[in-house]
């Protein structure tokens, strides 16, 4: 274990920035999100929930995929990607880190999505353990320990220091890069912080949510549950919950005509939208109830059934905070799964 004094963090960022890109939570226009670091930027490491999750780094909100040049009958296809420079994603919380693992299972499954893979391989992830979980947090329900060592490097902020531990080869490489700024540490402060955080976690309001009913064998029973109607009634179909969600992965592929050929790009899409499944002869999900059900069934039943029981929700609580209608996955779990005594 190493440590670095908080007042020296800017030196650490500058050092990383010399040879790699650095994305870190930065406050801009009153909102904290992952942005490119630069001298004088307002870094806000402690912000637990950036508005957008870091999934943006691997699966951007919009991304050019290819260009077409047409001349007469001829079509030429030009790969629109450029080599991604290695970068460090700094300050990722445990829930968001686990969400990247959820996305990996989709995008890196055969046939590999090379657009995602290119960005993913260029990244070194530095996580920051949580010491002040918020009331909307419920990662522990999904077996995530927000104090634990995830990512290539794990850091803990405690007192006047940032503590640092490398977990992987990539992490070791980053550690040697910034080695001159780090000093050895005995790890006691981190252990003490972990103990204290665990006590807070146990008392969080959503800590007792019961997932035991969300199993593949209950798929049809849950799908047909009469409660969906009432739960979804207020849903506006705005898609906010899907855009802020670190595990939502649905996308659209579209063409855009420019003066200089056609650009085919992909962009986030939402299963909450009525045209998501619209076809020439009809729509397989006609009502907002069906679309609402799809989002939560996918996270709690369909995805786990395809991925050895791994849920596609990490309890980050973003949808809890952001839904204009106060609907969210916590209400769904409470209604259909209940709480442990």
């Amino acid at each position: 274990m190493f440590r670095i004094a908080k007042e020296k963090l800017n030196e650490l960022y500058a050092k990383i920035n010399e040879s790699m890109g650095l994305y870190i939570p930065i406050k801009k226009a009153g909102e904290v999100n992952y942005h490119v670091w630069g001298e004088g930027k307002e870094v806000s490491l402690e912000t637990l929930k950036t508005v957008k999750s870091p999934k943006n780094m691997f699966f951007p909100q919009t991304e050019d995929m290819m260009k077409f040049k047409t001349e007469g009958n001829n079509i030429e296809i030009i790969d629109a990607r450029f080599e991604k420079r290695p970068f460090v994603l700094f300050g990722v919380k445990a829930c968001d880190y686990k969400a990247i693992e959820v996305l990996d299972k989709v995008f890196l499954a055969e046939p590999v999505d090379t657009f995602y893979q290119m960005r993913r391989e260029a990244t070194t992830i530095v996580t920051l353990a949580c010491s002040k979980p918020e009331e909307s947090c419920f990662c522990t329900v999904f077996g995530i320990d927000p104090t634990a060592a995830y990512g290539d490097v794990t850091t803990w902020l405690e007192g006047e220091y940032l503590y640092w531990q490398a977990n992987t080869e990539k992490g070791e490489a980053l550690t040697s890069l910034v080695g001159g700024l780090l000093e050895a540490d005995n790890g006691n402060a981190v252990e003490a912080q972990k103990e204290a955080t665990k006590k807070v976690l146990e008392k969080l309001p959503f800590a007792a949510l019961d997932l035991s009913r969300f199993k593949p064998e209950n798929l049809n029973e849950l799908f047909n549950a009469p409660e969906w109607q009432e739960m979804s009634e207020a849903c506006l179909g705005c898609g906010t919950c899907t855009f802020v969600c670190p595990t939502c992965q649905c996308f659209d592929i579209r063409d855009f005509k420019t003066n200089n050929g056609v650009i085919r790009y992909r962009c986030w899409d939402s299963c909450m939208y009525s045209d998501f499944t619209l076809m020439a002869h009809g729509n397989s999900r006609n009502t907002q109830m069906q679309r609402f059900r799809q989002r939560f069934m996918h996270k709690l039943v369909y995805y786990p059934s395809q991925n050895d029981g791994l849920y596609s929700c990490v309890g980050c609580g973003r949808c809890v905070n952001k839904c204009p209608q106060r609907l969210n996955i916590v209400k769904v779990i409470k209604t259909l799964g209940g709480e442990k005594k």
């Binding site: 798929l219 649905c250 996308f251 592929i253 899409d269 299963c271 998501f276 499944t277 076809m279 369909y302």
Partner: peptide, 19 residues
């Protein structure tokens, strides 16, 4: 079955029914 599709490779989520 015929459902709306975009990616064709199980990633865009569009043609998902159950698992």
């Amino acid at each position: 079955l015929e459902l709306r599709m975009k990616c064709g490779v199980g990633k865009c989520g569009r043609c998902n029914v159950g698992d």
